[in-house]
Computed example of a mutant assay.
Amino acid sequence: MLEQLPVVPDKRRVAASFSRSAGSYDAVASLQRQVGAQLLARLPHLTSPRWLDLGCGTGHFTRLLAERFGADSGAALDLAEGMLHHARPRGGARHFIVGDAEALPLRDASLDLIYSSLAVQWCGDFAAVLGEAQRVLRPGGVLAFSSLCAGTLGELRDSWRAVDGFTHVNRFRAFRDYETLCAESGLEVSTLERRAQTLHFTDLRALTRSLKDLGAHNLNPGRPDGLTSPARIRALAAAYERLRTPEGLPATYQVVYAVLNKRL
């Protein structure tokens, strides 16, 4: 049985948050760069594909895909218009499109490759994302995605639980749900794996500032209203300090990597 996300962040809220963070995103996107590069390394050999960077953000990987496959055969799509305004002047694709991964504004069988790094975790209906990939890919086409699953930022979640009962950390679907949905998608699963990747921060402020600058701070319904009191921040910092390592305060991301193929 699928473990559905209890409540999914509103898409408009997600788009607005990332739009506001377009200018600060690249400076704090070290994990995003690492994950995207590892996803690029997992791509099979393709000859002159028509490709899409799905959830392109500021266009960093759009430009790397263009170097590899050519810009004229590529498109970049994101739900956040602010990100596209930031990406478009830098080039890398023939088309920059505002769009939703759950309802792609693209023709059937129009692509050979969909690359999507750390975007689809914001989609409430991942079965629809896979269905759209199945629709727009040509036979033999490839969907390569990375995402986040349950357990991400577990240190921060556990530290908040010592303070109050509100939802402070974004919730993501379980890895077993990715396994089930990919298996049922009609696409052939070439690889699907989960890997933990841990960043370290000097203090709590550095971590929360990084999440805010990424646009990936708490977007869930059920989050507390208003500003967090100084007393609760001190309690959170004290709880998190108990997890400190020689490298700093750990923040672990549970990353999903997948490569799926449309059958010939």
Rank of each mutant, 00 (worst) to 15 (best):
R33Q: 14
A196I: 06
V169N: 02
L5S: 07
S147W: 11
R68K: 12
V142I: 15
G91P: 04
V136E: 03
Q38L: 14
H168P: 10
G23M: 07
V256K: 00
R232H: 13
L204Q: 07
S17N: 03
R171L: 15
S24A: 13
A183L: 05
M83Q: 09
Q134N: 10
T62K: 01
N218P: 04
A162V: 09
F61E: 08
L260S: 01
P105E: 12
F145K: 03
P44G: 02
R161E: 14
T191K: 02
E188G: 07
Q32S: 08
P250M: 11
E102M: 15
G74R: 00
A80K: 02
A66Y: 04
F96Y: 15
L54M: 14
T58A: 03
R234H: 13
F126I: 11
L106E: 06
R171Q: 15
D125K: 03
F201I: 12
V189K: 04
M1T: 12
A150F: 04
G74N: 02
V255I: 15
V120K: 01
Y257F: 15
D164G: 01
G124W: 02
R50D: 14
L156F: 10
V98H: 13
A251I: 11
H95M: 12
A183E: 12
R42K: 14
V120G: 03
R12Q: 14
T62N: 03
P89I: 10
V136L: 09
R234N: 13
L260Q: 00
V120F: 07
A127Q: 12
D213W: 04
G124S: 04
L148C: 08
T47Y: 10
V256I: 15
Y240Q: 06
T58V: 06
V169M: 04
P105H: 09
L211K: 00
E188H: 10
L84Y: 06
A119Y: 05
V28F: 07
R94Y: 12
P250N: 04
C149K: 00
V14T: 02
R194T: 11
T180D: 10
C182E: 05
L64M: 13
R12K: 12
D53L: 08
F201P: 06
R161F: 08
R88V: 13
Q134E: 12
K11V: 11
S48F: 09
A183P: 03
S190D: 15
R263Y: 02
S21M: 05
L2Q: 08
G141V: 03
D177K: 00
T152I: 05
D53I: 09
Y25P: 05
L113M: 01
Y115S: 04
R244K: 13
S147H: 07
W160N: 04
T208W: 06
S21A: 15
L65P: 05
R176T: 10
L243P: 02
L106M: 11
V163E: 04
F96H: 10
P224N: 05
A144S: 06
L84P: 10
R107H: 14
D72Q: 14
L52D: 06
H85N: 13
F18C: 05
L43C: 09
L106R: 01
F175K: 00
Y178S: 07
A216E: 08
V142D: 01
R50S: 13
D108C: 09
